[in-house]
Design a protein around this nucleic acid. Structure first.
Lengths: 359, 359
DNA sequence: TATATTTTTGTGTACGCACACGAAAATATT
DNA sequence: AATATTTTCGTGTGCGTACACAAAAATATA
């Protein structure tokens, strides 16, 4: 590996001069600049990123604000783990990640955690914009302070966020349309079922449903949709009765789409005989969903790769702070199709907390 | 971030002593060892990997031997790009990657390139074991010299390779069975077509076919298979005539499986009317395949994520050499399902050669 | 107790780069 | 021509760690 010192020796100048040329700093004559640049290229010089970040040694703190996860819905566990892994890795680069989490059903805790966050005076913020109105408030404070912020997983329009990291919900829904069609044929009726309903998530869910329907419309395929929505608080008995009655009564129903991460709640309630010849498609590889997938009670899961989303968010932010590399405005993640047969391999994203692994 | 120096100050010892404790080196009394360890934990000390790799500064060269890619089959372009990207990244850690490529249809070039490779006296080798007999020869030389070697993409049995990085071909084939079944229903006939036939690749292809068939057998689903094989040299006209005649004559054919990366060659030959109601499933997201997928002439592609395979291989090897972290014996990659609808997002793996991006 | 030996601990240098400071060279001003 | 000013360049230090070597302390041997 050729170093700055090597270049300096060859060019017969000092390392300082080489450094100036590399970084396009002023104070070097055109003549030597040309000479050094030539030698730089001839020797295929590549900066040693290791040494560089050692030498830079500025301190940045990045604050993260995401929902806490709960027993009945582990979705946010996975992004958190991605964030944690990335945190460990960027620590050596002088980036410290501070985590704040709020209660999904408590708007106040969202604001309260943000107050704690802003007190830290972070250099950048990553957040899941769960509540729209409150997010506007928060964002105005951030912008006043000139703190860049990035949205994670949830896409909110009309903000000046430096980046969004997540899935294209419409396209993901569109894909479920295709999968449903391929595995049921035309002229089918589909049940679309929403379990939990909170304001902000609905934007994602609506986009997914729109995409699902648009697949059939754009491809001129006949289909019918029936909606059944449940409240988060309702018990399994009610869900079971409702769904099974519907399936018994309407034999044209060939598939069920649950455009949230709660498909396990539905699939778990369907009777064995009704399950035959019915395709179930849902989102997210939560532990409950995977369990049902393994039992062949779910046909397809669309994964958001949320672990990677968290991991990438931290890394992109670190890259922005350290190397001034501005992230893309929208970083869309793969729309991964998970089945019983490939599920075991799609889980390479998992990561155990091994806080003592490297001393 | 708390450093070794900080710990030394707090513990009232020198950095040398702290270093010894951290690395469990001998020459430190039990008393101070306990004391330092306590302070290490109390302050949640984490090694600065940046500084560590700067200080280590050993030089390793890793040799890579893979097939060159050709116009008619770009498959190996993608692993190469992954390897190149990783090479750039590990360079700073003192790992230099040397690339050797051979002609897929010329066994001699495989051996000849290896001769060049071994002259470099590399610290480790990554190779695609294309020709079985020759690989045995090569491996014996490597083992005599005590050079560890890793298999990339192609799985060969009976060797003492430190790791295999690639896909579980059987499971991938099994998945195509499921997808085919879901999108055609039972009691269908399927065309299984092999385009190119060279000895070694056939192991992968055979496993895929076995998996495909086993899906139906294990799930007790009625099906029928018809085989049509073509030679690599044959022209499109012949393929077109053969395939279309078959499809015209046997209306029970509902799907075509091409268990190699050459499905585009087939799909390109099928007439419009025959394409309706036929599902095509193939492997690998080569440029030609993606083009056909976009045109809706292919239903599913199974991606090997070969870019990531190359990328991971180099990184795992670097980690092994630098930190002595032994890789898993088998690193299986996700079996990714790609359709027209999610294809655009599955390509985030691509990477342009930006050799001058970071000067 | 004095000396030799072993164990334990401290110090210094290198890794490759960024950056501050000051020296030298080139140019401008009187 | 002497001095002031600007441009150009070289030197030195620090980032956090690994490691070799030296020094000190503890222990063993005479």
């Amino acid at each position: 590996m050729v170093t700055i010192k090597d270049i300096a020796r060859i060019a017969n100048v000092s390392v300082g001069t080489v450094d100036r040329v590399i970084h396009n700093r002023q104070g070097v004559s055109e003549k030597t600049k040309v000479k050094v640049n030539k030698i730089l290229k001839e020797n295929n010089f590549k900066i040693n990123v290791i040494a560089r970040s050692l030498a830079m040694k500025k301190k940045y703190t990045v604050a993260v604000l995401i929902p806490e996860f709960r027993e009945e819905n582990l979705f946010w566990k996975s992004p958190l783990m991605g964030i944690s892994k990335a945190s460990d890795e960027v620590l050596s680069f002088g980036v410290e990640v501070e985590l704040f989490s709020f209660n999904q059903s408590d708007c106040d805790s969202y604001l309260k955690q943000f107050e704690l966050l802003i007190k830290l005076n972070p250099k950048a913020v990553i957040l899941a914009p769960f509540f729209l109105k409150e997010t506007k408030l928060m964002v105005s404070k951030l912008e006043a302070k000139g703190i860049p912020y990035m949205f994670l997983n949830l896409e909110a329009e009309g903000f000046n966020n430096c980046s969004f990291i997540g899935q294209d919900s419409y396209k993901a829904g569109y894909l479920t349309g295709k999968l449903m069609y391929l595995s049921t044929g035309d002229n089918s009726t589909y049940l679309v079922s929403i379990i939990n309903s909170n304001l902000f998530n609905n934007i994602v869910i609506e986009k997914r449903i729109k995409g699902f329907e648009d697949f059939f419309k754009k491809n001129k395929i006949k289909f019918k949709i029936r909606n059944v929505n449940f409240d988060d608080l309702e018990d399994d008995n009610l869900i079971s009765k409702t769904i099974n009655t519907l399936l018994n009564d309407d034999k044209s129903i060939k598939g069920i789409l649950v455009p949230s991460s709660r498909i396990a709640t539905i699939s778990n309630c369907i009777s064995e005989q009704n399950l035959v010849n019915i395709r179930l498609i849902g989102f997210d590889t939560t532990e409950q969903n995977i369990e049902q997938l393994r039992k062949n009670r779910i046909t397809f899961l669309i994964s958001q790769k949320s672990f990677n989303q968290g991991y990438t968010a931290v890394n992109e932010m670190a890259d922005y702070l350290i190397h001034n590399k501005v992230p893309q405005k929208k970083i869309f993640f793969p729309i991964e199709i998970v089945t019983k047969e490939n599920e075991e391999f799609s889980q390479r994203n998992k990561w155990e907390f091994n806080s003592l692994s490297n001393i």
